[in-house]
């Protein structure tokens, strides 16, 4: 699903990622661990081009999204992202946080189809009968798009038990609640893959459990995931593949059992002995 080839990223002279090769298949859950500053967050942020890679290629949906000419916004709609600092939109209510982007995207597509139809109708005027092109179908009216997004948001909020908070602003929620809303906000876009950037690092220890439980639930539904985390136990339980990143390179990549019980490289042995 995502194919990373020889990815490089440098900030100025500092090389943060140095020749990363990685492939994430459908249904796979990849956990990335490593020390701070090892480049694991940068690697994740490169996967949806929040950081533009300085070299290499990332193939998603049959296109190299590291290329500047590709319409990255179109691809990002299929890549959900959850941040360490939640990043809920502070000026929107909880429900609007979830519905806002699906509604904007839906309306954008609706207008685009309408424009194209107008163009087809215009060109049809100058064509003989046999060459006339059919109009593109418009499946939903704007009201239906809004209704659908709203229903979906209600359903998602009920699922995480925050339906009664739907009209409140993010500033009134606890950290765990914010992160759960952030996760369902990403889910509302029906992503093909989800990226988690240290989803529990900014939370109180008490609230880590509820967020991890939600991520596990989403994982069990078969969502493809890439997770940067410091929670070793969680990585072991959820991931199907664990990567160890150090100094911008993938040092070791193995299924979780083998990764944690039988590490091969010295660097990983040292790291695990410190954190476990």
């Amino acid at each position: 699903m995502i194919e990373v080839v020889n990815l490089e990223k440098s900030f100025g002279d500092k090389k943060v990622l140095d020749g990363i090769n990685l492939s994430v298949k459908e249904g796979e859950r990849v956990a990335i661990i490593g020390t701070s500053g090892s480049g694991k967050s940068t690697l994740l942020r490169c996967l949806n081009c929040l950081e533009d890679p300085t070299g290499g290629a990332i193939y998603f949906g049959g296109e190299n999204i590291a290329d500047f000419k590709v319409d990255i916004n179109k691809h990002r709609r299929h890549i959900g992202m959850v941040f360490q600092q939640f990043n809920l939109f502070n000026n929107k209510t909880v429900k609007n946080n979830i519905t806002m982007v699906p509604v904007i995207c839906g309306l954008e597509n609706y207008r685009k189809t309408k424009r194209k139809n107008l163009f087809i109708a215009l060109t049809n005027l100058f064509k003989s009968k046999s060459k006339k092109k059919a109009l593109l179908p418009i499946s939903e009216t704007p009201a239906e798009i809004k209704k659908k997004a709203s229903d979906k948001a209600d359903e998602l909020l009920k699922r995480i038990g925050l339906f009664d908070k739907k009209d409140e602003y993010p500033s009134t929620l606890s950290g765990g609640q914010k992160q759960r809303v952030a996760i369902v906000r990403a889910l509302a876009m029906n992503p093909k893959v989800m990226l988690f950037d240290e989803p529990t690092s900014a939370l109180d220890p008490e609230m880590v459990g509820e967020v991890l439980a939600l991520i596990k639930e989403v994982a069990n539904e078969g969502m493809t995931m890439v997770i940067v985390t410091h929670e070793m136990g969680f990585a072991r339980e959820v991931a199907t593949k664990v990567l160890f990143v150090d100094e911008g390179k993938i040092v070791e990549s193995a299924p979780p059992d083998e990764f944690f019980t039988n590490p091969k490289s010295e660097r990983l042995k040292e790291f695990l002995s410190k954190v476990l």
Binding site: N73, R76, R77, M81, F83, N87, F89, N90, V101
Partner: peptide
């Protein structure tokens, strides 16, 4: 906060 812009971009706006 720059995260607000990032969140918008990451969702595909």
């Amino acid at each position: 906060d720059s995260g607000q812009m990032e969140a918008g971009r990451a969702l595909g706006l």
